[in-house]
Design a protein around this nucleic acid. Structure first.
Lengths: 249, 249
DNA sequence: CGGGATTTCTCATTCATTGAGAAGGTTGCT
DNA sequence: AGCAACCTTCTCAATGAATGAGAAATCCCG
């Protein structure tokens, strides 16, 4: 008796379970999973078994749960990211070779910056911007570029949802965005690391719509950003040309 | 009345829906999806709505369904593939630069070759081995390498399941695998393209277990594979060293 | 050895899931 | 315009799949 369903659908729970993993916690126990996803243990156990059966999760040698390869396969087969990635990779390599710094490709997703691809130099700064990781719009050059070059109605929507924090961190927001659009790039100090500066330019498709941002992280001491910007622009243009058509949601 | 449930769980259906997409069909209508996944239309409609609500699917401007970025994010956040990819990418770039040919990183998954990463030269051959795509073990150098360097019990299991086709396509299988292990690489003609040859070497972790294979596709006319093999070996060793520990299921 | 944790399983209860059906829209052909 | 074929969207009664408390079995650590 006494069963009180807890009001969330099965899919809710599947997603919460898959979402409970992150780079630091690549494998978890069922109990931890249950706590993190806030699902009763017995239920979690059953759901995890299901997911394992489908290969979306897998148990390692010690019985811990990790993401299964099948999940990765499923999500990467559909071409959402692949086109962009494939188009951008060669140019990111160029940048990486030329500037010898971290290079990132990112998009705006659910009001945050989502990193699609990243090339790092073995030397340089720390791990902070991982592939599939998220970063705040208002503190990164990628975010500010992505926002500034969005469609007016998208900008309006974003500001409606996040006007508070944007205005408090960017007192002259409208002017700043206009400036970014005029100059064609955004730069911003020290989110990833105190001693670094990020610089980002938009990547457009051939209809002129922005589809992503390309960015690098350089030491703060760098005298002039101009060479960096030039390299980024060249790369972005190359990606645009490779992409040709296509615009994604 | 008359409701006859069709015996597959919700998760089954979610997976079948997500699985219905491939690179060629990156966006589908609900009706097509229903047919492909073999789920009654009304049900498909509801499930798709759910998935869209969670961002695992998304509707484009024309109301067609595509994979959602959230799905990609979910699947890539957990570090299953990322470690391997990150470790291998720089070395794959080296190969790509040196040999100017397609380079692939793959693993054995559910008795097939699963492509984890791929770098292509704008010039060379056709799209066949896409990231997250699968290829048959018995027709690719990657497959043969991955198999030959698997643990004995894994090989035995594989042969139990696929002995038929393996023996018919590889009459001297045991000798062939022994040879691959002795030489440290496998090569194979013309799966991706009639006029190409694939060559692959194993990538091991520092416990000596194989975790992946690294391969290139070269024109069949290539006089000697030796330089190619050398480059692959160097790269594989580099990846192994970067990986250090870790072994995945 | 003992106590705290985790994994695994059972089972009666119930409500979320189901899918036939129908209405309304779109497209394309004649 | 009229018709046919197809698609999307929604409703609703019936039901069996999902639920979660509880308990047994197992692991782990000092």
């Amino acid at each position: 008796m006494a069963n009180s369903r807890s009001g969330d659908s099965m899919l809710d729970r599947f997603v919460r379970i898959l979402d409970a993993f992150d780079r630091d916690n690549s494998s978890l126990s069922v109990a931890t999973l249950a706590r993190r996803a806030e699902i009763p243990l017995a239920t979690t156990y059953r759901l995890v078994e299901d997911l394992c059966g489908h290969g979306l999760l897998a148990r390692d040698r010690q019985g811990q749960i990790r993401h299964g390869l099948r999940l990765w396969e499923l999500a990467n087969r559909g071409a959402v990211t692949q086109d962009l990635r494939t188009a951008a990779l060669p140019f990111m390599e160029d940048i990486n070779q030329l500037l010898r710094q971290h290079t990132q490709l990112s998009v705006l997703h659910q009001d945050e910056v989502l990193i699609i691809e990243r090339l790092s130099r073995p030397g340089a700064a720390v791990n902070q911007a991982n592939v599939a990781g998220r970063m705040p719009v208002h503190r990164t050059s990628m975010g500010m570029t992505l926002l500034a070059f969005s469609r007016p109605e998208e900008i309006a929507g974003f500001l409606e949802r996040h006007g508070e924090i944007m205005r408090s961190t960017h007192p002259h927001l409208r002017a700043e965005m206009a400036e970014i659009r005029r100059r064609g790039y955004a730069s911003m100090d020290g989110y990833i690391d105190e001693d670094t500066t990020g610089a980002a330019v938009p990547v457009t498709n051939d209809a002129g719509y922005q589809v992503a941002a390309l960015s690098v992280v350089v030491p703060r001491s760098t005298a002039s950003l101009q060479p960096t910007i030039m390299a980024l622009r060249t790369a972005a243009r190359g990606v645009s040309r490779t992409l040709g058509y296509r615009r994604e949601s």
